[in-house]
């Protein structure tokens, strides 16, 4: 799908510039992880940031590439429940529509105004994660729109290499989207069975020959030499249920324990994020 309404720059073909910097390190080496393998990055979550929306939330996750500088910035607004248009067929449940969009300036490679396939893909993942959490039959004949703008992507701007492809970044973005959408849904007063939060875990191989792969939570691609596999989990803590699971990588089928422990770590990351979410929601009430 190409953008026919606006004149965009040439697609592809160019490489984003890298500016020389006094503190620029060796471009090819990765920096290494500065946190414990089980620690997720600090995040800032606030609800009710958009007064005009029924519910809204803002999420910021710090980047550990440069201390103090924020990485992922997400803004979510929820519109609804509101009545469906007259033309829409009857629905016994609330009609959920999710919309995830990177701001054009959010990533190194500029994004267009129209949603590209990867953004649509994220939207579907988010929808699957949320649909399990909301009690849809409480709101028949109504619809709700969940709109997430990724104001700033979680990419290390000083690294010149594109680490594999962008899919690992997408997993981090999705986990943030799930958490921020859950906060915004709660802010909008839409019935949910539980608060859902996202978590990412990855099997990584660090720089250096023959290092054994380890499992870390909340991975940053630029911190590791190679990511072998990763999974993003949307988890309901009190019900102990998973609403969305997205795994990608390359694991031997004979060794299911590796996969199981990866999912367990993802759930653990999700539990940590959920604590922030619950804390933020109870803070709003007080």
């Amino acid at each position: 799908m190409t953008d026919r309404r606006r004149i965009n720059g040439p697609a592809g073909a160019t490489v984003p510039p890298i500016f020389d910097d006094a503190g620029l390190q060796d471009l090819t080496s990765s920096k290494g992880r500065s946190r414990a393998p089980n620690a997720i990055r600090k995040m800032y979550l606030k609800t009710g940031v958009t007064p005009s929306a029924s519910g809204s939330a803002y999420l910021e996750i710090e980047t550990s590439a440069t201390p103090g500088v924020s990485g992922l910035k997400l803004s979510c607004s929820v519109h609804g429940p509101r009545s469906l248009p007259r033309s829409a067929p009857f629905s016994p449940h609330i009609v959920l529509s999710t919309h995830v969009k990177y701001a054009p300036f959010a990533t190194k490679q500029r994004r267009g105004y129209l949603r590209d396939p990867s953004e649509r893909d994220l939207g579907i993942h988010l929808e699957a994660a949320l649909r399990g959490a909301i009690i849809a039959d409480r709101w028949p004949k109504s619809g709700v729109d969940i709109i997430i703008s990724i104001v700033e992507g979680d990419q290390d701007r000083e690294a010149s290499r594109l680490q594999g492809d962008e899919v690992w970044d997408m997993m981090n973005a999705l986990s943030g989207c799930i958490t921020v959408a859950a906060a915004a849904l709660a802010d909008a007063g839409i019935d949910c069975v539980d608060t859902v939060a996202g978590g990412v875990a990855a099997l990584v191989q660090n720089a250096g020959e023959d290092s054994t792969p380890t499992i870390v939570v909340d991975p940053i691609p630029s911190e590791h030499e190679r990511i072998l596999a990763a999974c993003c989990v949307a988890y309901l803590p009190t019900r102990d249920e998973v609403t969305n699971l997205w795994f990608r990588g390359d694991l031997p089928a004979s060794d299911l324990d590796l996969y199981t422990s990866l999912v367990e770590k993802g759930i653990q990351a999700s539990k940590n994020a959920n604590r922030v979410l619950v804390g933020c929601l109870s803070e709003t009430v007080e």
């Binding site: 699957a128 609403t243 990608r248 990588g249 004979s254 590796l258």
Partner: peptide
């Protein structure tokens, strides 16, 4: 492939299956 299951005895027969992706 980088052998992640070095501790396991190599399967002498049959396919070497690998898990690539899972989506709900």
């Amino acid at each position: 492939h980088i052998d992640t299951d070095t501790g396991h005895p190599a399967a002498e027969a049959g396919r070497n299956l690998r898990l690539l992706s899972i989506r709900t």
